[in-house]
């Protein structure tokens, strides 16, 4: 009897508890290297990481909101507003960067706080609340720039998104955005998986009533989650402004890509489960898919179809696994 019950137990333990997103990522990278051996060189993978950085940072922030049980649809518009706002405020003056960047980060936190307050105090579901802020922020970006953004961002501002640190041993060069990526994702991962805030975010997403009864300040934690997501949006905006330049649609679609990346990383919609490193894996996998499709010479529409299929398949697979393991 004991032997019988122990056997499947041992079997389950022997199966490595590895998140499927890393397998997917490894397969995709192998595919890319096969198609284009140059990818294995530092130039290849550093450029890849540089391109993936904004999405990865965004996904790391989005995981907080998804794990707490909500959605943040406003980050795409926030990116646009940050890029447009920064170009208006710096007004081609390189020395303005030093106060514009902190201001933009504060704006990200502020937008997150507003989102959180709408959800917590006005009790509007986050889907609608952040949809409202998405429309509003987009309108503000247009209003601020008068519809056609003019000017460009000074090089000091574009430093984070564009510059490379050269003469680094082993890899020859590191883009600044990759350093930003490592620092931000590392910080977000620490906050999520090593602190009380992270545990409370999981708790309110899993069962808000139980969390409240257990003494979790539900509103404060939820607002913090939205603020972190807003912050990640502002950072992603600063990076994207660096390498994409100023336009009124830089951020369009990023909110859905961030949610896709988080979901690929196994974050559970409607809360309770989510991991920042896995979301990073999801973002890298999504970027790798797009890179691979580019190498294959497939046009933009195919990219959309593939993204849609992967999204559905990832969640269906996760649900299937969850049903089988009974959790």
């Amino acid at each position: 009897m004991t032997d019988q019950s122990a056997a499947p137990d041992r079997k389950r333990r022997r199966l490595p508890q590895i998140n499927p997103v890393w397998v997917l990522l490894a397969v995709l990278i192998a595919g890319i290297v096969y198609m284009n051996p140059g990818f294995a060189e530092p130039t290849g993978y550093m450029n890849f990481l540089k391109r993936a950085a904004p999405l990865a940072i965004l996904a790391a922030g989005q995981v907080y909101v998804i794990t707490s049980g909500g959605f943040d649809l406003s980050v795409g518009s926030l990116i646009t507003l940050v890029v447009v706002g920064a170009s208006m405020l710096t007004n081609n003056d390189p020395s303005a960067t030093y106060w514009v960047i902190p201001l933009m980060l504060a704006m990200g936190l502020g937008v997150g706080a507003v989102n959180g307050a709408i959800v917590c105090f006005l009790r509007v579901p986050s889907l609608i609340a952040t949809l409202g802020t998405m429309i509003t922020l987009n309108g503000l970006a247009f209003l601020w720039s008068g519809g056609a953004p003019r000017g460009y961002l000074p090089d000091t501002f574009r430093f984070f998104g564009r510059e490379l640190i050269r003469d680094v041993p082993l890899v020859r060069f590191i883009p600044v955005s990759v350093i930003v990526l490592i620092v931000v994702v590392g910080l977000f991962a620490w906050l999520m998986h090593r602190t009380n805030l992270g545990r409370m975010v999981h708790a309110i997403g899993d069962n808000p009533v139980a969390a409240r009864l257990a003494g979790v300040p539900v509103n404060r934690v939820r607002i913090s989650a939205f603020m972190l997501s807003g912050l990640s949006g502002a950072i992603a905006g600063i990076l994207l402004g660096g390498f994409a330049g100023v336009s009124t649609d830089v951020g369009a679609g990023y909110e859905l890509e961030a949610i896709t990346a988080a979901v690929l990383g196994g974050a559970q919609l409607l809360g309770g489960r989510g991991s920042v490193p896995a979301a990073l894996g999801g973002a890298l996998a999504l970027t790798a898919i797009f890179t691979l499709l580019n190498f294959l010479g497939l046009p933009q529409p195919v990219r959309q179809v593939v993204q849609g299929l992967i999204l559905i398949a990832a969640v269906a697979l996760a649900m299937h696994r969850r049903k089988r393991t009974g959790t």
Binding site: F71, V263, L269, V302, R303, Q304, G308, I312, V315
Partner: peptide, 23 residues
Amino acid sequence: GLKVNPLIATLGMSLIIQGCLSA
């Protein structure tokens, strides 16, 4: 059937339709 969150399921469907259409 697959118990996929409806938001994701229909979002994916939307991408698929739009992709096929613009192809």
